[in-house]
């Protein structure tokens, strides 16, 4: 039995390793504390030790034991911080710039996926938008997938258990996060922040394809978009509601 679900990204293993690192420290601390807590319960019970000693603990020679423990705790804390900071930087701060950009937008209660259209940018009018229940976002393997995360109505949270990544999506903001998948497969994208009545049903998929499969899939999508767009002018990718307009107006200032 695996503690974690199957890992499918480059940085996933780092998160798992971090868990085991912290677990080591925590286990040591736990064992020591349990001994310190339970040993006196036997040794100094009323029967074995009817007369208690008078120790106020204000003396340095007594308090130094607590100090040692605290210093140990502080040191292991900072080792953990030091060890994990690289992972944090890699995942959250150093988002790569090259790769395939996709848009993931949370709405009540579905994830809307945007593929870049002909212009290679997401969230423009020629995007290919997939807005169906249980839809799939196809991405190629071993490529940086740069996800632009947005929310249209309320706060949602993109959670990819297999990619070990998660980020809130907030109305009015765009968060750019990334993942690089190393395994072909079909993985869940769920919403991890309560977002209304059907929060429990908010689940779509990311499908990791080989490069060839992905190209084929995209070619089919573009062809379909062309045939759909041919007779009439391009429809806006995302319905520009009054809300979106006013944000934009605010934006120009």
């Amino acid at each position: 039995m695996n503690i974690f679900p199957e890992n499918a990204t480059t940085y996933g293993q780092e998160i798992d390793n971090l868990f085991y690192l912290i677990l080591t420290f925590v286990a040591i601390a736990f064992v020591i504390s349990v001994v310190v807590l339970f040993y006196p319960m036997f040794r100094y019970s009323e029967k074995r030790n009817p007369k208690a000693q008078y120790i106020t603990g204000e003396k340095k020679s007594h308090f130094k034991w607590v100090m040692y423990a605290l210093i140990m705790l502080a040191m292991s804390d900072f080792i953990i911080m030091y060890a994990e900071h690289g992972t944090w930087e890699k995942i959250e701060e150093d988002v790569p710039t090259d790769g395939i950009r996709v848009g993931i937008t949370g709405i009540q209660w579905n994830w809307v996926f945007n593929y870049a259209g002909k212009d290679g940018k997401v969230m423009t009018a020629d995007d290919i938008v997939i807005n169906e229940a249980n839809s799939e976002l196809h991405v190629p393997i071993n490529t940086n997938i740069i996800m632009e995360l947005r929310a249209r109505d309320v706060v949602h949270d993109v959670f990819l258990p297999n990619a070990r990544t998660k980020y809130d999506v907030i109305p009015g903001r765009t968060h750019v996060k990334w993942a690089n998948f190393t395994k072909v497969g079909k993985y869940e994208v769920v919403c991890s922040q309560i977002c209304g009545v059907l929060h429990s049903k908010m689940r779509n998929y990311i499908v990791v394809d080989t490069k060839e499969d992905y190209d084929k899939y995209m070619a089919a999508l573009y062809a379909k978009q062309d045939s759909a767009n041919a007779p009439k002018p391009a429809a806006p990718a995302i319905d520009t509601t009054a809300k979106a307009d006013s944000t934009k107006a605010a934006d120009k200032k």
């Binding site: 310190v36 006196p40 100094y44 208690a52 007594h62 607590v66 605290l70």
Partner: peptide, 18 residues
């Protein structure tokens, strides 16, 4: 952690009634 350790240290050398 210091506060909890001090509580644990109170037990040492005591005469504990359960």
């Amino acid at each position: 952690a210091g506060i909890f350790l001090a509580f644990m240290a109170t037990l040492w050398g005591g005469s504990i009634k359960f």
